[in-house]
């Protein structure tokens, strides 16, 4: 679901980024008002879980892959506004350091995964929780919410892809950016997300939520600084070690092909907007380093990504607050 650069026109990217500005503004205000600063490190842990979740690629027949996002997971734990901020920072790290998702299309990716996914997922979760009784109501709600959320996000991404050939064509009538229209993009994106990727999001969300409920209930309920529980740290370490499983999925996710791959996907040509478009060389492209085994590169990337996210949110928790010297880890 990470839209790379040059799949969307610069105009579309600008509109999506502009659409995200009020969302980010409101989210930051809400997080400032509703979440105590001392709980921000927990948001970092949530963002790290989302980051790691996105590294587990799952293959579906047809050679395409996808992954869970974990937006509804963070929304269930800390609210949709916090989830929006957490997923935004995770996407920024992915784009800047790992080249996963474009720089120009950052706004669009945030719209899909940091706005639509957690907000729709959270709304669906709340709706279900009001109707289901019992001690597992939150888990059932989050399961359905995460499924609805990821599918809503995938639909948005499919529409963004699909409108490109309708809006941007060269003199010969060829698409300048994404060559597939809505008739291809929607079924292609939704097929995977309605089936395996949706289920993956449900499993990831409910498994981590159930684990948190048992091992670190204070993460959800406490309004004070909480030390990250040991089981939670162990779970994160296990996820980091297991990330190379994402390499078992061969093939590229739909809409994330490189310029030399796209012609062979059925388009028959490489759109000119992609050939001469913006290119950014990231520090660790595709979570791998030349000369290093892929699995090791994947683990290193997971460690770096998760650590940076936790550090960023820990720093935010003490930003402009030099007097509070006794915060917990």
């Amino acid at each position: 679901m990470h839209i790379p650069d040059n799949y969307l026109s610069p105009q579309t990217c600008a509109v999506m980024a502009a659409a995200m500005v009020p969302v980010w503004t409101v989210s930051i205000k809400k997080v400032k008002a509703e979440i105590p600063k001392v709980k921000l490190p927990m948001l970092g842990v949530g963002a790290a879980f989302s980051f790691l979740g996105m590294m587990f690629n799952i293959p579906i027949p047809g050679g395409t892959t996808g992954h869970a996002v974990g937006g509804t997971l963070i929304a269930s734990l800390m609210g949709p506004y916090a989830a929006c901020i957490a997923v935004t920072v995770a996407l920024l790290i992915q784009a800047l350091i790992f080249g996963d998702g474009g720089i120009l299309s950052f706004g669009a990716n945030c719209f899909n995964m940091a706005f639509v996914l957690p907000f729709v997922g959270y709304a669906a979760t709340q709706l279900i929780m009001k109707r289901v009784k019992g001690k597992n109501a939150d888990l059932i709600g989050s399961a359905i919410g995460s499924y609805v959320g990821i599918n809503a996000a995938a639909l948005c991404a499919a529409i963004e892809f699909g409108i490109q050939p309708m809006l941007f064509r060269d003199a010969a009538g060829n698409a300048l950016y994404c060559p597939y229209g809505l008739n291809v993009s929607i079924p292609a994106m939704m097929l995977g997300h309605l089936t395996l990727f949706g289920i993956a999001e449900v499993v990831y969300t409910t498994a981590v939520l159930a684990f948190v409920r048992k091992a670190a209930p204070e993460m959800k309920s406490s309004t004070e600084a909480v030390r990250t529980a040991l089981p939670l740290k162990l779970l994160m370490a296990a996820l980091v070690i297991l990330t190379p499983l994402g390499l078992l999925a061969e093939g590229t996710a739909w809409g994330e092909w490189s310029t030399d791959e796209i012609a062979a996907t059925g388009a028959g040509f490489t759109p000119s907007g992609m050939l001469s478009g913006f290119s950014y060389s990231s520090l660790i492209p595709d979570y791998s380093l030349t000369g290093m085994p892929e699995w090791l590169g994947y683990i290193l990337s997971a460690v770096i990504g998760a650590a940076i996210l936790i550090i960023i949110f820990k720093l935010l928790s003490v930003a402009g607050n030099s007097k509070k010297e006794n915060l917990t880890v």
Partner: peptide, 9 residues
């Protein structure tokens, strides 16, 4: 970074 992320803010 991993070691640092486990330290206090």
């Amino acid at each position: 970074l991993l070691w640092l992320s486990m330290k206090s803010p």
